[in-house]
Computed example of a mutant assay.
Amino acid sequence: MLGNRSYDHDKYRRLVRELGVKPLIARRCTEHGSGLGTQRRLVERAFAHLHRFRSLRIRWEIRDDIHEAFLTLGCALICWRRLQSFRQEFSLPPPTGLP
């Protein structure tokens, strides 16, 4: 789990470890440039891509399974679009065996 300096407290580190997750939280009063920002940028960008879909930006569904299905569909669409742009960028032929 990545966290910024505002979560630098033993209480939060302990809670995360109890869940079986290794915390990567920047320490307070230390110099910036730990490199955690480059990893967090990927996560922030993924959330930005998902928020393009209105049904994911504002959660209208009460049931968790429906919301999870929309999340899965959104991730699949993001991956598909990314692969399409990659294929166009490198002029790759379409895959064989697909309709």
Rank of each mutant, 00 (worst) to 15 (best):
R41V: 02
G3I: 06
I58E: 13
C79K: 11
A69I: 00
R41D: 05
S55A: 11
T30E: 12
S85L: 07
R57V: 00
Y12H: 12
R41A: 14
A26R: 06
R59F: 00
T96L: 14
I62H: 08
F86Y: 15
C29A: 11
R82D: 04
W60M: 12
L50V: 15
V21T: 09
A46F: 00
G33A: 13
L50G: 07
D65I: 01
S34Y: 09
N4W: 09
R13L: 06
D10L: 13
I78G: 04
W80V: 02
R57N: 13
R63F: 05
G33F: 14
G35Q: 12
D10T: 01
R28L: 02
R17V: 10
G74H: 06
F86W: 15
M1R: 10
Y12E: 03
L36N: 02
V16P: 00
L2V: 01
T96S: 06
F90W: 13
D8I: 00
V21L: 11
N4K: 09
F70E: 03
D65W: 02
Y12P: 00
F47G: 07
L15E: 14
Y7D: 02
L24W: 13
L71F: 05
R45D: 08
L83Y: 11
I25A: 09
R28H: 05
L92G: 08
L92P: 10
I25K: 00
I78T: 08
G20W: 04
I78F: 06
L19A: 14
K22R: 14
R81V: 05
I58G: 06
H49W: 15
P99F: 06
L83A: 07
F53P: 04
H51Q: 15
S55M: 13
R5A: 03
F47P: 01
I25V: 03
D8S: 06
I62Y: 12
T38W: 04
F86T: 03
T30N: 14
F86Q: 05
P93T: 06
R13K: 10
R27N: 07
R82W: 14
L50H: 11
D65F: 00
G35S: 10
Q39L: 15
R57P: 02
L50E: 12
V16L: 07
K11N: 10
D65Q: 11
V43D: 00
W80I: 06
K22C: 09
I66P: 00
I25C: 01
S85F: 10
D8W: 11
Y7C: 01
C29W: 09
T30S: 12
L56Y: 08
L98C: 11
E89K: 01
L77Y: 12
P94E: 05
L50D: 09
